[in-house]
């Protein structure tokens, strides 16, 4: 992402008006558009940032998400009334204009921009500012009010570059292969799993757990550049990498893998306490790190920030100490 210097010219100060987005028991709500964003409680109209289960839940009257996000959401939620929208396409909903912009988190993920008479709010959903080999890169959207996630909103979370981490994983994989041992990487079935495949393509055979393969197949058909993979059913080929969910390793399926080494890839692996008990650990996150959050907030040029998820209070306090108006949205 382009690291813009903090803007000198901010949007003109606005008269105090009703907030465009509120926190409600069902989730974020836009009263003027009468829709929710990533609701968890049943609502008539839902705008969805991406297909992870803590953002896309069953039971909504209708769904709106990017064309790229829709196939996985349909796969996961079953029979739903849903519609896709292109990145950047503007749509009038009630008294507001809505558009979706790349969030760099997982394929099809979006930030949602809401405009009413020149006033702009952006709900970030989950986002990652650094690019990867798979998903649409993050785009900063200028706004007056920015709702940012703060999953890793502390300065202890500072990621190494994607290439560097993929190199570490590749070396671990090759060392295992040289000993005739299968490498098992634990990853979330949508997003992280495919990012690993894309980043590790061309090194050796990649196998998957069926749950991972189903999502991978959908994304491959959508045109995302993913290497060939096949479901591990019984012993994988010599020197293979197997990508599986943590749950899968506690199932009988794992007994078919033969001798193997296990590794986890997650932002939480930055902490020694979280690395205990996993064979190997790689720090690889689909969320913005400390520097990424700060760059994203600066690039929006916003004068008001609300924090959501994770370290909401310390991150809001940090922004206030830098002269911004910020508070945790709860």
């Amino acid at each position: 992402m382009q690291m813009n210097p903090p803007p000198t010219l901010r949007y003109p100060a606005l008269m105090t008006r009703a907030p465009l987005i509120l926190q409600t028991p069902q989730g974020l709500y836009c009263p003027e558009g009468e829709f929710h964003i990533d609701p968890m409680g049943r609502v008539p109209r839902a705008l969805i940032t991406h297909g992870h289960s803590d953002h896309a839940a069953r039971g909504m009257g209708s769904y709106l998400c990017t064309h790229q996000a829709l196939p996985v959401i349909r796969h996961r939620l079953g029979k739903i009334t849903a519609e896709g929208i292109a990145y950047g396409e503007q749509r009038q909903i009630g008294g507001v204009t809505v558009s979706f912009h790349p969030a760099g988190h997982v394929p099809g993920s979006a930030q949602i921009r809401i405009e009413r008479g020149g006033e702009v709010w952006v709900a970030s959903g989950d986002y990652k500012t650094a690019p990867d080999a798979l998903c649409e890169p993050f785009e900063a959207v200028r706004c007056h009010t920015f709702l940012t996630e703060t999953t890793f909103g502390l300065p202890i979370f500072q990621w190494q570059s994607e290439v560097c981490v993929m190199g570490q994983i590749a070396r671990w994989w090759q060392d295992n292969a040289a000993r005739g041992v299968v490498s098992v990487l634990l990853a979330y079935s949508f997003g992280k799993a495919q990012r690993l495949m894309a980043g590790l393509a061309g090194i050796g055979p990649i196998c998957t757990h069926p749950v991972v393969e189903a999502v991978t197949d959908i994304l491959r058909h959508q045109g995302y550049a993913l290497p060939p993979t096949r479901v591990a059913n019984g012993a994988p080929p010599q020197g293979a990498l197997v990508i599986a969910t943590p749950n899968a390793m506690a199932s009988d399926w794992a007994m078919g893998l033969g001798p193997h080494e296990v590794a986890a890839a997650s932002g939480w692996m930055a902490l020694a306490a979280r690395r205990k008990g996993t064979g190997a650990a790689f720090v690889l996150s689909d969320h913005a790190d400390w520097a990424g959050l700060n760059a994203a907030v600066a690039a929006t040029g916003s004068e008001q920030v609300y924090t959501l998820h994770g370290y909401t209070d310390p991150y809001a306090a940090w922004l206030r100490s830098k002269g911004l108006s910020a508070e945790a949205m709860s």
Binding site: P155, I156, A270, A273, D313, P314, A317, W318, S321
Partner: peptide, 21 residues
Amino acid sequence: PDFLIDACLKICPDKAELAAL
């Protein structure tokens, strides 16, 4: 700032590790 160090110590109480991170 100190308030961030305090917030970090809550999930990473090992000061040698925190200084490294």
